[in-house]
């Protein structure tokens, strides 16, 4: 297994109170697999991604990649293996940095050469014209920005991509284009996806296995076939399935 998460708990301390955002969640993701986490907001799904990146306080449990526990702080080697794409492309790109600077920064940090050619290639790979290099984020649409965010995550050629609601800030039509792009990149580069979404239909389209979460706990793990045939065993997973927007079309 490429990613192994064992009894992971994340506890935040705020104003003397302890908030247990994630409680004893375990799952594992094989290389080249696409794994989905679903649940409503506050269920702890994004916190798991942040914990993997070292952005959330892990209070118990272990995260292993390639069988090795992650160092803390995560370090440069981790950044070359694992990258994250955030939910809101309006917030995740620096408003005063050109696309060129956004994309060249990881190369500079890791001392990689040939930045010109790499940036042009990265833009072409995500379906943007090379001329976008010298634009600022505000000169791009939401979908184009998310493409830039994906290009940035891929600059260091990681094996694992953590996707935190990558399309929920986008229109349905732009969402389709972004999902197609992610699917294509995964096939071309043999990437492993760990994807978070509250939209079951999106997760179903993208992922092979799904973990349903509620209140920080794992509720049920489902295969794609089990989801399609509504073969869930817990009430919560069933309720989520029933409330899922695409069921409304049949309604």
């Amino acid at each position: 297994m490429l990613i192994e998460i064992e009894n992971l708990s994340v506890t935040f301390h705020a104003q003397g109170r302890r908030v247990r955002a994630v409680e004893e969640v375990s799952f594992s993701v094989a290389a080249r697999e696409s794994f989905g986490l679903v649940g409503e907001s506050g269920s702890g799904k994004s916190t798991i991604l942040r914990a993997i990146c070292g952005l959330a306080p892990i209070s118990a449990g272990q995260i292993r990649i390639d069988g090795k526990p992650l160092p803390s702080p995560r370090g440069a080697a981790f950044a070359r293996e694992v990258q994250m794409v955030f939910q809101d492309p309006y917030a995740s790109l620096h408003p005063r940095h050109t696309i060129d600077r956004v994309l060249s920064e990881p190369l500079a940090i890791h001392g990689l050469k040939g930045s010109d050619a790499r940036i042009e290639q990265a833009l072409t790979d995500v379906g943007l014209p090379a001329a976008f290099r010298f634009r600022y984020p505000h000169q791009l649409s939401g979908g184009q920005r998310q493409r830039v965010a994906i290009a940035r995550a891929l600059m260091l050629e990681p094996r694992i991509l953590l996707l935190d609601e990558p399309t929920s800030a986008l229109d349905a039509s732009v969402q389709a284009e972004t999902l197609n792009l992610l699917t294509r990149l995964r096939a071309e580069r043999g990437l492993t996806f760990l994807m978070v979404s509250h939209d079951l239909a999106v997760i179903d389209h993208m992922c092979d296995r799904i973990l349903v979460m509620q209140h920080g706990r794992a509720v049920e793990e489902l295969s794609r076939a089990a989801l399609a045939s509504a073969a869930m065993t817990t009430d919560y997973a069933r309720a989520l399935f029933a409330a899922s927007a695409d069921r409304m079309l049949e309604g």
Binding site: S173, N180, A201, L227, L249
Partner: peptide, 20 residues
């Protein structure tokens, strides 16, 4: 029709979603 078809469906095909 394009707006409808570009939505992923549970249990739908894995083909690329039709672009608008």
């Amino acid at each position: 029709q394009g707006l409808l078809n570009c939505l992923p469906r549970i249990g739908g095909s894995r083909e690329p979603l039709p672009a608008l």
